[in-house]
Write a protein that binds this DNA or RNA. Structure first.
Lengths: 146, 146
DNA sequence: TATTGTTATACTCTATAACTATA
DNA sequence: TATAGTTATAGAGTATAACAATA
């Protein structure tokens, strides 16, 4: 193990920050250029997982400002991958949902984009994969902490 | 465990991608606005860990193009946080190193920036922290895979 | 008043392309 | 030729500020 288990908290912060930043940039650099952008594809993934969702809720989930998510959704709408629906009871809100094309784009393009990460995962043995998978909910809990 | 240990690889890819993206954005959104930017602070961290380094090596480590790292380093140099030194044997290369101000900036500002993540880590129990720490080298190995 | 969303504008990060200098 | 770095330019992602509509 190259990182000792009882690292002081400050070191954990630095190591985790750098590792996450590095993985994200690597993921982005491996992205198929004619596919979906990073924020487009995570927004689509969230719509697929959570069903129709408002701009504000998506923004909260992704830790960006509503205006930023609005721009991402506007682009996805222009490409025909999401559609807006009126909220049944609140006239201010707009629900966004995947279109058929959105579902297909999500499957096809994201398969291409994720080829590299799949291959990289193959470089971990079964125990390491299990360890990594069990760390995912912890990363999510960190992201969602107050 | 909210993510079962034997998730199919495609699901691992999606979950990991989303979790890492979410954590990164949360980290960035918690950043002290008058502090160092994300790429500035990871570049400083790498210089502190690795000593004087060339633009190209830093770019490789961070998975960005040399021109992008060059822009980050130029900004850090303008702020007096790094200095350039000639390479002893190769006239093409330039070694960048932290200045005294850079070391101090790294400590002070990054302490402020990382306050949130430290607090979030405190929300994990000891076993969870150990699990997360042991996943860090795995994330790094993914990032460095061919 | 508070919340949802939009429009306008600017800054950061990163990329590609074209160039210079050194090996 | 190949490599390290620089300069110029462009696009994506996100932020803040100001606004309109609805609750």
């Amino acid at each position: 193990m190259s990182t000792p288990p009882d690292l002081p908290p400050e070191a954990i912060v630095t190591e985790l920050t750098m590792a996450v930043g590095q993985l994200l940039r690597r993921l982005r650099s491996e992205t198929n250029p004619d596919g979906l952008s990073w924020s487009q594809s995570t927004a689509l993934a969230r719509l697929e997982r959570g069903g129709p969702t408002t701009t504000a809720d998506l923004a909260r989930a992704e830790a960006v400002k509503p205006q930023s998510m609005g721009a991402t959704l506007a682009e996805l709408e222009r490409e025909g991958l999401v559609m807006r629906h009126p909220h049944p009871t609140d006239g201010r809100q707009v629900l966004f949902a995947l279109t058929g094309a959105g579902v297909e784009a999500r499957r096809k393009r994201s398969a291409a984009k994720q080829k590299w990460l799949l291959a990289a995962l193959g470089g971990l043995d079964a125990d390491e994969q299990r360890l990594l998978v069990s760390a995912i909910p912890l990363i999510r809990r960190l992201s969602e902490a107050d």
